[in-house]
Simulated scan of single mutants.
Amino acid sequence: MTDTETISETTSETCADSRTRAQRANQARLLSEQADRYAVTLESVISVLRSSSMDDRGARETATQIAATALVRLRTATDDHLDALEPVAGAFSRLKEDVQPLVRFGKLDVEFVEPPTNGRALPGDVAHAARAIVRNVLLMLANAAEAQRSRVHWDCDGLNLLINIRDDGRGETQPHDDALRPVSEHVTALDGQMTVSSTPGWGTEMSISIPLDPVSAPAPLEGLPEVSGREQEVLNELARGARNAEIARTLGITEHTVKFHISKLLKKAGARNRAELISLMH
């Protein structure tokens, strides 16, 4: 085999590996989206069954309708093209559809402030992440049962998607709370920024900025002891916001093994948590 043939074969293998990695990442994102929707659906059903404004028959019928609608949506999932652009207003409308049952039958009153219709279109992964972020926050508020009202506002400055979420809860939420970890990791994975401002007795405001331009691929951490190939694969998955179960499915390993690799990476990097590790990669 000539040198040219060897280079050509190596290049082909590299391209095939890249395509496989992209397919796995896309599948993991779809699974994450489905998990978010399951959580919203279950919380909506529970809210209906607990509602004091409905009789037993009405509650059962409404809960059945919510579950049936979610099942139809699952069978006709439309999130399989995450690389496509979504108009910002359309992406926001999909968010409202996702959480509509939770808002309608839950105890949390949510006000949605529409984004400008002429805003720059959102890349599919940004639109997906933005919806997941807001759903996670609203679920957190609903489960905590401390806030009565929340306000969700999207805007676009041409370079970033701007998300603002306010609530009238106790005002005790802190940026490093465990409940906010999925949100902070999602934001960090997209090279975004998040600030949390809480005022005791007045509520909490979260301001999130997500860049619309593609995120550069994570590079190996410099100055560390040698990072193995498997550890680098785990880093890549962490960088896009994947959770342990998703990483395990994507890489074909157990969650215990994922935790083992993350623990080793944290020690090598001297990082205190996953979010800090992801930040060091960028």
Rank of each mutant, 00 (worst) to 15 (best):
N26K: 11
D17N: 14
G90T: 13
G270K: 06
I7Y: 11
P220K: 06
Q193R: 13
L95V: 02
A275D: 07
D55L: 11
H128G: 05
A189L: 07
W154K: 05
G124S: 07
G201I: 09
N160E: 14
T64A: 14
A269T: 11
T199N: 07
V113T: 13
R29H: 12
E114T: 05
R149L: 09
E255G: 02
R149G: 08
N160P: 07
T6N: 02
R60V: 09
S184T: 15
N26A: 15
E33H: 13
G171F: 02
L138M: 01
I247K: 12
P116R: 14
T173L: 14
A22V: 08
I163S: 08
G241Q: 04
G169V: 01
I165A: 10
S216M: 11
P200M: 08
S44A: 13
L31I: 07
Q34E: 11
R243F: 14
I210L: 15
S47W: 00
I165C: 08
L95H: 03
L31G: 09
P225E: 08
V152S: 13
L238N: 10
A179I: 04
T11P: 00
T117R: 14
G169Q: 01
E237Q: 11
P123Q: 04
D56I: 04
R73A: 15
A130R: 06
K259A: 12
L139S: 03
R181C: 05
L74F: 15
S53L: 06
L161F: 02
H261G: 01
D80N: 12
A189Y: 00
Q148A: 02
I208N: 06
E255P: 07
G241I: 04
A127Y: 06
P182N: 08
L221N: 00
W202Y: 12
T2Y: 04
L71C: 06
E61Q: 14
I165Q: 05
S52F: 00
P200A: 11
A217R: 14
V227G: 02
M1W: 04
P101N: 11
R166A: 09
T64V: 04
L49M: 12
A59Q: 05
S228H: 04
N273F: 02
R21M: 11
L277K: 00
E33Q: 10
D178Y: 05
R29N: 09
P225H: 05
A84E: 15
G171R: 02
A242S: 15
N164H: 09
N136P: 10
R120M: 03
L108R: 06
L266T: 13
T11I: 09
E86M: 14
D191S: 14
P123S: 12
V103T: 10
L212Q: 03
T250L: 12
E9N: 02
I247V: 10
L224C: 07
S18M: 12
G192T: 02
L235Y: 01
W202P: 03
E5C: 02
D36H: 13
E255W: 00
V110K: 08
K259D: 10
L139C: 03
S52E: 07
L277P: 07
R166M: 12
E86L: 15
